[in-house]
Design a binder for these strands. Structure first.
Lengths: 107, 107
DNA sequence: TTAATATGCAACTATATGGTTGCAAATATA
DNA sequence: TATATTTGCAACCATATAGTTGCATATTAA
């Protein structure tokens, strides 16, 4: 399949998935799927698909209990995104650097 | 269209685009499209499409000079991703918190 | 036992995505 | 001027994505 970081980035690249993930994080409690999907306009099945994507990225975990499936957030995979970002940190402040590069073009 | 942060996340969610962006960052010099595409296996047009996506996200800027178009990286939009991540920072360390949540399920 | 609830699976649709190729136009070079 | 180079545009293709609906199944509650 895909790279781990690619899975995580694709997972959080969708606004609805970011909302679902956020809801689970701030809830700080495991929630069954129906309860989660009740907070969104899209169908339960739509939410379920997003949950699977989040699960594949490791951003949530699901645990069955009776007929219900409890989902809870796990922010740990975001560490890797943070690490990826860290390399570029030194570049996003010096806009002057970019400007310099721009001015460095052959004329 | 889309949210700014969504555009940025979608842009970096593709491995080829991350490579292109990285190449431009470390080059720390503006490069014409043909020169960039020479570093990748996919066609020039394929690269051009990725460059447009990166440009829409603000991760590169393009400047025409004669028949050439010079591209250079701009890491600034990554700040917003960093800011989004920052909120979750406090959650990704305490795996115990997640475990607690897990154990908090009704029985 | 019967009814309600929570879920998964499958099929389907529309659109986005990552890639290709062919061709035309603009610019630079011989 | 004739030729080579850099690029954009457009059409096309295969697959992925975000969403839907219908139905079957398992579990819980009346």
């Amino acid at each position: 399949m895909q790279d781990k970081i690619t899975r995580v980035l694709k997972a959080i690249a969708d606004p609805t998935r970011r909302e679902i993930f956020h809801a689970l994080v701030v809830a700080s409690a495991a929630m069954p799927i129906t309860q989660i999907s009740g907070q969104f306009q899209i169908s339960r099945q739509g939410v379920t698909k997003h949950l699977r994507t989040l699960e594949d990225a490791g951003l949530i975990h699901i645990n069955s209990k009776g007929r219900e499936r409890y989902c809870f957030a796990d922010a740990e995979p975001l560490k890797e995104v943070n690490h990826w970002l860290k390399f570029y940190e030194r570049f996003w402040d010096d806009s002057l650097n970019n400007l310099g590069t721009y001015l460095d073009q052959p004329s």
